[in-house]
Simulated assay, not measured.
Amino acid sequence: MRTLTDDTFTEGVRAGAVLVEFTASWCPPCRMIEPVLAELDRELDAVDFAKIDTDDNPRTARDLGVLGMPTLQLYRDGELVAQLVGARPKAQLMAWLEPHL
Rank of each mutant, 00 (worst) to 15 (best):
R2M: 11
T3I: 13
L4A: 09
L4E: 00
T5H: 07
T5C: 11
D6K: 09
D6E: 12
D7C: 12
D7S: 15
T8A: 10
F9N: 07
F9C: 04
T10E: 15
G12W: 04
G12L: 09
G12R: 08
G12D: 05
R14G: 01
R14E: 07
R14M: 10
R14F: 06
A15R: 15
G16Q: 07
A17H: 13
V18M: 09
V18Y: 01
V18P: 05
L19G: 00
L19M: 04
V20A: 00
E21Y: 00
E21M: 00
A24Y: 02
A24V: 04
W26K: 02
W26L: 00
W26N: 04
C27Y: 05
P28W: 05
P29C: 03
R31V: 04
M32H: 12
E34F: 09
P35T: 03
V36N: 10
A38L: 11
A38E: 14
A38S: 12
E39S: 15
L40S: 07
L40D: 01
D41E: 13
D41W: 02
D41A: 12
L44E: 06
D45Y: 02
D45I: 02
D45N: 15
A46R: 14
A46C: 03
V47N: 05
V47L: 05
F49I: 02
F49S: 04
F49Q: 00
A50N: 11
I52F: 02
I52D: 02
I52S: 07
D53Y: 08
D53K: 05
T54G: 13
D55A: 12
D55P: 00
D55E: 15
D55I: 07
D55Q: 13
D56N: 14
D56L: 15
D56H: 13
D56K: 15
N57Q: 15
P58S: 12
R59A: 15
R59W: 10
T60I: 10
A61N: 07
A61K: 09
R62A: 15
R62H: 13
R62N: 13
D63M: 14
G65C: 01
G65Y: 01
G65Q: 02
V66F: 00
L67T: 09
G68V: 11
G68M: 14
M69N: 07
P70Q: 08
P70C: 06
T71S: 02
L72Q: 06
L74F: 03
L74G: 09
Y75Q: 03
Y75P: 02
R76K: 03
G78L: 07
G78D: 03
V81M: 01
V81Y: 00
V85G: 10
V85I: 14
V85D: 07
G86Q: 04
G86E: 12
A87P: 02
A87D: 13
A87K: 10
R88S: 12
R88V: 07
P89A: 11
K90P: 08
K90L: 11
A91F: 11
M94G: 06
W96M: 09
L97T: 05
E98V: 11
P99Q: 05
H100G: 06
L101P: 06
